[in-house]
Design a protein around this nucleic acid. Sequence first.
DNA 1: ATGAAAGCGCTAACAC
DNA 2: GTGTTAGCGCTTTCAT
Lengths: 339, 339
Amino acid sequence: NKMAKNVTIKDIARAAGVSYATVSRALSGNSSIKESTRQHILAISEEMGYTVNSVARSMVLRETKSLGVIVPSVDNPFMSEVAYHLECDARERGYSIMLCNSSYDLHTEESVFELLLSRQVDGIILFPSGKDSYHNIKKFLDKVPTVFVNENLIDAPESYVAVDNYKGPRIGTEYLLSLGHRHILYFGRTSTSTTHSLRAQGYADVCAENNVAPLFYDSISDVTSITSGYEMAKELLSRPIDFTAIMASTDTYALGILQAADECGIHIPDDISLLGFDNIRYSELPKINLSTIEQPKRMMAMIAMEMLVEKIHSDYEAYSHRILLPTLIKRGSCQSIPG
Amino acid sequence: NKMAKNVTIKDIARAAGVSYATVSRALSGNSSIKESTRQHILAISEEMGYTVNSVARSMVLRETKSLGVIVPSVDNPFMSEVAYHLECDARERGYSIMLCNSSYDLHTEESVFELLLSRQVDGIILFPSGKDSYHNIKKFLDKVPTVFVNENLIDAPESYVAVDNYKGPRIGTEYLLSLGHRHILYFGRTSTSTTHSLRAQGYADVCAENNVAPLFYDSISDVTSITSGYEMAKELLSRPIDFTAIMASTDTYALGILQAADECGIHIPDDISLLGFDNIRYSELPKINLSTIEQPKRMMAMIAMEMLVEKIHSDYEAYSHRILLPTLIKRGSCQSIPG
DNA sequence: ATGAAAGCGCTAACAC
DNA sequence: GTGTTAGCGCTTTCAT
């Protein structure tokens, strides 16, 4: 099209009357070069509106200074918050972010991973869409440093950062128990994600330890959106209710439950107590006022980036698992059972 | 580091006993090549786990098939929804997205724009952080096809897609008027954004047409987050209240108002009616139930992508302004004045 | 149908 | 301190 042709170091070299290697040196700054010629070249390149072509630079340096970030959906409030911090942190370190949505689909996830590979990203941060992600992706893992976020790859020799997904619901369930609840429903169990299996297990174990029968309501899909939570809850709440509290596996599910409960004339927390997981921004709104388990999102982004950059520069193979502590946020959606 | 060295077409050529030009032809498919050698090469490259190096390809093709997307913050629900669609649409067309957050800062915006330029993106989609964005960015506009989103560059010869930001608040204000309100406060006016100036103007004009005195509460910053809305509202609501309805310039502000109102013991809509702008996902939650003006986000993404790709491939200079229609979404946060 | 070779813009190793 | 040159992996003329 009609875009102005970019000026290259050759153009500058010609204008400055030096070789183009000298221009490269002047611009990179780290080679020995006479200060006066350096100033001269800098002035000219400024004047000509020169911008380095980092594609060309990538070719010779064999690094693109770009990172892939794969999330199920950047529209999810948990992920968008982490993604925001990830991009800012990356940029501070000189990296750009290529963002891809897997749309909770394993096949899409695999294909965007390969796409990022062909784009020669220096590393990838992957929010797996499920536990089978690892098996799909494994074959690429020797080609690019990768850090997994929020999926516990317990048995895999791969780096990840995650909140303690077992402990979170433990804390939550204990809290609900302390409020007198004995019929607690775990909402959103799925077998397709280690994260979610761990969460369900944390719940189940606390139930067992307290001689309370666990009650599960399983996810119909891997999409953890408000909408899917709403649809699941609509069905759940139209049936006889044999629980006094719900431990939801994500805040978005909890918001969906809130919506469905409202339509079904069920009042929270008077009729049912509700506890979420994530502490997304919307949970703290007074009208929502959702008690929940906090995941330290800012911290997760920071650590993921740190781990990835470290992995990119490290010469020896190593992996680490960084587990962050979830904390209980008491708000208004949980009530004690009278008596 | 210890990553496996990528296999190149030269490796394949050697293994297949052909020149590497032939491999390139076999892989791209569009050149004449004997079917048997093509199959042979394809089999070998499959076997060797070949992935094209699109950085190298970009060098010769002089296009990267990557697009820059600059948003104030991908953590904002309006932007994250548009960003999600943008990425999916782009990928479908063979483009990858480099995402950058300007954090509502003009200087950051300018510097990430230049960063994307150096990365040789084929085009940029910019959610301006304010009306001065254009002046800052103007100097780059002949270097890369750019489409602006949601900022009306009325007088600028540049392409943009936006909702009709003048009409939206007109509709909203007329609705509030029809409910009997005569003291309507416009919340979140700012002089630093054409979008927001237009919104405020739409409000003001309807007021004038109806002999109602306009009332403005100006933004303290350009950050349209819940938090900033909350802080502004906290101060507003602690002062004497001389209005019966609020027209908020964004839904996030409205959520902040909801939060502050709750803390101040002000009930919405009984004490004050509240109308938002954007129709983010959280506004429809029954507990929130915010009446608002809808921006067609999916559509905006589609059109922005369409415009950009068209601009990339077009040989002649042209620009277009695409204005979408906002619609009123009546929910429960507005009430008619009795009498 | 296939090979040889130029070249995209840049960095770095090697001369001088 | 500066110039010359090779080469990163690929596509694309131009020969053959």
